[in-house]
Design a protein around this nucleic acid. Structure first.
Length: 367
DNA sequence: CGACGGGACGC
DNA sequence: CGACGGGACGC
């Protein structure tokens, strides 16, 4: 059983909080908050969605369309904005051989739409990817990994916006209210950021458009049991027709600069501890020492992902035993984020081992 | 105590 | 009144 981050000492579990899209700037000044890990050894954020329930093996009974659901094809949601297709491939390849990988980008701007597809050769790898990568924190996001449904027109536009909910209604209450009308993919109740109290507004995403339509017909204007106010149920706004803060021209006049996270700050001459060959042109290589023999790549993703853009991770194994030789490497895109990760994770207790984390040096057995 | 990979230009 | 953290089906 591989170690999970959640099993580590809680006081060391650091999570990156930032509202800014990672642009490689002054991230060191921003706060790192210690996050008390609720026990359980799982990073899965089951409170924010319900898809796990919907994708049990029992749900493989085909729904109306009669389409067989793929057991190798995954949809990945809530990806960090800067994450590239190759980084996604790198992440999912840590589980097993990936057949194909596709990050969905805006057709005109080229910006990531924050989701993509990963298809494995083997169903067991897809299952393992869900078990180990769903809920993984990467930068300021918590990714979601679930089986992709067969693509069809029937599943599009099935997201509902619900308002007028009683303030004491829970996510589970909301699901109970809507579940008679179809298979719920995600649900959410919006809460005030400060008070944490419900805003009486939520979202329900159904599997099928027709399910959403029927829920509107049946529930819009009705008064939930125990409430006095009728709820409004309608289709959610389409994010592509966003009326958000004007996405000014400048934003996609220089998409390249953003894609690569902005200028890299070379520490040359300004610091006594030079990373030296830690920088390999497209990232900063970090050495992680004192990993347990059973360590798998996903552990490194869990450790470093919250601190910023991770390009790749590697657990070094003995060729005969296939056990980790006690160390590994992580390549991060941005120097500032790498520094914070090193400062935060060096000395971190993983299991019963104290990690040593630093920029990679030149040391090697043959040199 | 221990400690820094490995694929591999090839169109 | 309200619009997610977060553009969910191949952009």
């Amino acid at each position: 059983m591989p170690h999970k981050v959640a099993e580590m000492s809680p006081q060391f579990l650091l999570v990156w909080h930032s509202n800014t899209v990672s642009s490689g700037s002054s991230m060191m000044q921003n706060g790192l908050d210690a996050v008390p890990q609720t026990n359980g050894g799982s990073l899965h954020n089951s409170s924010s969605n319900s898809s796990a329930n919907s994708h049990n093996s029992s749900s493989q009974t085909n729904s109306a369309g009669g389409q067989e659901e793929s057991k190798t094809n995954l949809i990945v949601n809530y990806l960090p904005q800067t994450m590239t297709q190759e980084e996604i491939r790198s992440l999912f390849s840590s589980i097993g051989e990936v057949e194909s990988c596709k990050l969905i980008r805006d057709k005109v701007t080229g910006q990531s739409l924050g989701y993509g597809f990963v298809n494995y050769h083997r169903p067991e790898d897809a299952e393992k990817a869900i078990n180990t990568l769903n809920g993984l924190r990467l930068q300021n996001k918590t990714i979601k990994v679930s089986y992709a449904r067969p693509s069809s027109e029937a599943i599009k536009g099935a997201n509902l916006y619900v308002s007028g909910l009683p303030k004491n209604m829970t996510q589970q209450d909301l699901e109970n209210l809507f579940s008679p009308y179809g298979r719920i993919i995600t649900s959410r109740i919006l809460c005030d950021n400060i008070t944490g109290l419900s805003k009486g507004v939520g979202f329900i995403r159904f599997d099928q458009r027709v399910e959403a339509e029927r829920a509107i017909q049946e529930l819009n204007g009705t008064i939930p049991k125990g409430s006095t106010e009728p709820i409004t149920v309608k289709f959610a706004n389409n994010p592509s027709n966003n009326n958000k803060a004007l996405p000014p021209l400048a934003a996609y006049l220089t998409p390249q600069a953003r894609r690569f996270g902005g200028p890299i700050h070379h520490p040359t001459g300004r610091f006594s501890m030079l990373p030296g060959n830690a920088m390999n042109g497209s990232g900063w290589c970090i050495f992680v020492y004192n990993l347990a023999p059973e360590t798998e790549e996903n552990v490194l993703w869990q450790l470093f992902g919250p601190f910023g853009a991770v390009q790749s991770v590697k657990v070094i194994r003995d060729l005969q035993t296939n056990k980790c030789k006690g160390f590994g490497f992580v390549t991060m895109t941005n120097y500032d984020e790498a520094v914070v990760a090193i400062q935060s994770l060096n000395g971190y207790t993983l299991g019963n081992r104290v990690l040593q984390v630093s920029f990679k040096t030149n040391k090697s057995k043959t040199a």
